[in-house]
């Protein structure tokens, strides 16, 4: 697995005196869907924020396509194609759906490519096309999640990191969003999926990591993790 697109090793990170990540290591290879599961407060979101350099890590390394990301600004990380759909969606509520999507392409100048991607996003989530002049804050939770994913896709990412896309969303829309993730992956997008919905995430992914109190405790192919007794007891509710 030397051809890892993203390689995080021994990442340590925290807020003030509190250490949240106590040495997280994970890899994502080109073309994979990798699941990162764990309970509330285990450090999943912090891992993503640290990879994006929104939170500055205290120690460890983060390499993306062979290049270290440590010390870059957050916008430089996005420029390299590593983009996050944040927890809670965080769409720009007082802007229109269209403006949100345009902002996703903030760093791009290729007008033709942006137009192509706008079509792709609208094909993937037709509801965004229907609602393009509506304020994002007026969308339902599921629609906002679609918008957040669409907005991230507008930057044409090489690796998309999604933080709990199923959180607080009607089950039918969760299915729709998981289908979209699968479709995007089949079209070549690499995905790192953070989820509390462990079963859904493991079914979708090829490999998985379990993070507990700031450390990766279990890792392996997703079909094995689905049958792992520890995981079944703690995360799958069997």
């Amino acid at each position: 697995m030397s051809d890892a697109l993203l390689e995080v090793s021994e990442l340590r990170c925290g807020y003030g005196q509190i250490e949240v990540l106590r040495g997280v290591s994970l890899r994502v290879a080109q073309g994979e869907i990798v699941a990162l599961i764990g309970s509330n407060g285990a450090g999943k979101s912090t891992t993503l924020m640290a990879v994006n350099q929104v939170i500055k890590p205290m120690a460890g390394s983060i390499r993306f396509a062979g290049e270290s990301l440590i010390g870059l600004r957050a916008d430089e990380v996005v420029q390299r194609g590593l983009v996050q759909v944040p927890e809670g969606r965080r769409v720009f509520a007082r802007m229109t759906v269209l403006e949100n999507l345009v902002l996703g392409a903030y760093l791009r100048n290729d007008h033709d490519g942006i137009a192509t991607d706008m079509h792709r996003v609208n094909d993937l989530f037709p509801v965004l096309k229907e609602r393009q002049s509506q304020l994002a804050g007026t969308l339902s939770g599921g629609e906002q999640q679609m918008l957040a994913i669409g907005r991230a896709l507008m930057s044409r990412p090489r690796l998309l990191m999604m933080d709990e896309p199923s959180m607080g969303i009607a089950p039918i829309l969760v299915t729709r969003i998981f289908q979209a993730i699968q479709q995007l992956n089949q079209e070549g997008l690499t995905v790192l999926l953070v989820e509390q919905n462990a079963r859904g995430a493991l079914k979708l992914s090829s490999r998985g990591y379990v993070i507990e109190t700031g450390k990766v405790t279990i890792e392996g192919p997703s079909h094995e993790l689905l049958n792992d007794d520890r995981i079944r007891a703690a995360y799958l509710g069997d």
Binding site: N52, R73, A74, V78, V83, P86, V91, L103, Y106
Partner: peptide, 10 residues
Amino acid sequence: TAAELMGIPV
């Protein structure tokens, strides 16, 4: 923060 994640140099 969301702006930062979209690549906007805040």
